[in-house]
Simulated assay, not measured.
Amino acid sequence: MKLSLIIPVYNEKENIDAFLSEVIEFCKSFSFPYEIIVVNDGSSDGTERILNDFKDEKVRIIHHKHNIGNGGAVKTGIRNAKGEYVIMIDGDGQHYPKDIARILEKLEEGYHLVVGARDSKSQASFFRAFGNFVYNKLASYVADFEIKDLTSGLRGARREVISKFLYMFPNGFSYPSTSTLAILKAGYSLCYVSIKTRKRKGKSKIRILKDGLKFFNIIAKITTLFSPMKIFFPVSLLLFVSAVLHFLYRYFVSGKYTLFTGILLLASIFTLLMGLISEQISTLYYKDIDTEND
């Protein structure tokens, strides 16, 4: 089978009927074998009943007994997928099904991960747009690669590649961030296609403050796993500069050397050593992935 389309759904009774019908109708234009996997993540608003009413041989419905999270639903979909390629698209109706073909086209060109990058007009609000801008810049620094949309819910990948990283995916909304950074830092290729989105019905499940902090936490974890010195070296340098400035201040003010200066200097050295050790561990991890690729 060539394509598995995965749609995670949670409490989308206002959107899922029309959206899934739209997806099914669009996919009829495909001339190759495909499947549509809808993962109901423990919905409690009647979404399950709506999904069970769909009778299409190309559609598989999987129900979680309780709510696990968007990332958990995606992982369930990928584990049950049979296609060479997997494309994930949110079930809230924001994305246009026609963009599925554009994602697939880039995957067939040889890219390991293809992400739909939303334009500025497609952002839900100014605060969401600003938050995504910050995430993108921070992730670009971590990955040494321009990240155009870290949190986009429309993305496709080679199933054999993305399956290697499922154990790293959190169950919440941070799975897009993790998949982007993990695949990039493991040496796989990434491509972006520009997309537009439409306004969804109902309220978004993402909470800016709570999930925003989770995104930063995920970026930090991925950084320490794949590029430890991106965090440890700046922290070490900051501590070293602080130690020097504190020494100069105390020397010219009182002419005395204080214990706090020494503590800052030792903290700088130990932080740098931790970064070097972590970098070696990261190299061993890369080696394991390269062995799997062979």
Rank of each mutant, 00 (worst) to 15 (best):
L265E: 12
R200T: 08
S242R: 03
K13I: 01
F30R: 09
F32C: 14
K58E: 05
I89T: 14
C27R: 09
A243R: 04
K287S: 08
Y285Q: 10
E48G: 04
G187L: 03
E12T: 02
K28D: 13
R79D: 14
G72L: 00
D294G: 13
A220Y: 07
A220D: 05
S189H: 04
K98H: 03
S29G: 15
S44P: 01
T271Q: 12
K214V: 09
S179L: 12
F215Q: 09
G110Y: 06
K203N: 14
D144N: 15
I62A: 02
N80E: 06
N217F: 06
G110I: 02
S140K: 05
Y251N: 00
N293C: 08
E108R: 15
V59Q: 01
I219T: 11
F19I: 03
M168R: 13
S122T: 05
N217C: 05
P97S: 11
T291V: 15
V9C: 08
Y96E: 14
R159C: 01
H63L: 06
Y111K: 08
T283P: 13
I24A: 10
Y10F: 05
G275V: 12
E105R: 02
S163R: 13
L190Q: 08
Y188M: 12
N132I: 01
L181D: 14
F252T: 04
V244G: 05
I222R: 02
F126R: 08
T197N: 13
R102A: 15
V161A: 05
F19D: 08
N11E: 04
S194W: 10
V161F: 05
S236K: 02
Y135E: 02
E109H: 05
I195K: 00
V253T: 04
P170H: 09
H66Y: 13
I87N: 07
H95D: 08
A243S: 15
K137S: 10
Y188R: 15
M229Y: 09
D294H: 11
L209E: 07
I36G: 06
S140D: 14
Y285A: 09
P8V: 06
V23D: 08
E292A: 10
N171C: 10
L51T: 00
L209Q: 07
V114S: 11
I289Y: 13
K256H: 08
R79L: 12
D211H: 04
N80M: 07
E146D: 15
S236F: 01
I6Y: 09
F130C: 03
V235N: 12
Y167K: 11
E160N: 10
F19M: 09
Y286F: 11
L51D: 02
L259H: 03
I281N: 12
F30Q: 00
N70T: 06
I218V: 07
I183K: 01
I289L: 12
F252W: 10
V235H: 13
L213T: 02
D92R: 03
I183F: 11
G255F: 00
I89E: 01
E12M: 02
I61S: 00
L259S: 10
R207D: 15
E14I: 01
D45N: 03
K148T: 08
E279I: 11
H95C: 11
Y251Q: 01
I87H: 10
